[in-house]
Simulated assay, not measured.
Amino acid sequence: MDDTELHRERILRHVSPIITGRFVGFQASYTREVRVGRALAIAVFVTAGIAQMIGSLMRMRPARRSLKDLRKGPEFLVTPVRLRDDLGQTYEIEMHGQLPQSALHRGDLVQVRTQPQADPTLPVKLMQVVNLTTMQPLTPRIPTRWSHLGPAMLLQAAAGLTIFGVVLAALLR
Rank of each mutant, 00 (worst) to 15 (best):
Arg61Ser: 15
Val78Glu: 15
Lys72Thr: 13
Arg84Asp: 04
Val78Asn: 14
Gln89Lys: 05
Leu67Ala: 01
Arg64Ala: 15
Leu67Glu: 02
Pro62Glu: 02
Ala63Trp: 14
Pro80Ala: 12
Pro80Val: 05
Gln89Arg: 05
Leu57Asn: 06
Tyr91Thr: 08
Asp69Leu: 14
Ser66Lys: 06
Arg65Asn: 12
Gln52Glu: 12
Gly49Ala: 08
Met95Tyr: 04
Arg84Phe: 02
Ser66His: 09
Gln98Met: 07
Leu83His: 01
Gln98Ser: 10
Arg82Trp: 07
Leu77Pro: 06
Glu92Ser: 00
Ser56Lys: 13
Tyr91His: 13
Phe76Ala: 14
Phe76Met: 14
Phe76Ile: 10
Ile50Met: 08
Lys72Asn: 13
Gln98Glu: 15
Gly55Gln: 08
Lys72Cys: 13
Leu83Tyr: 02
Gly55Pro: 10
Arg64Thr: 14
Arg64Met: 15
Lys68Cys: 11
Leu99Pro: 15
Arg59Leu: 15
Arg65Gly: 12
Leu57Asp: 08
Phe76His: 13
Gly88Tyr: 00
Thr79His: 08
Leu70Pro: 00
Gly73Lys: 04
Gly88Ile: 01
Thr79Leu: 06
Thr79Pro: 03
Gly97Glu: 07
Ile93Ser: 03
His96Gly: 11
Leu70Tyr: 06
Leu67Asn: 02
Asp85Pro: 01
Met53His: 04
Glu75Thr: 11
Pro80Leu: 04
Leu67Tyr: 03
Leu67Gly: 03
Phe76Thr: 07
Phe76Gln: 12
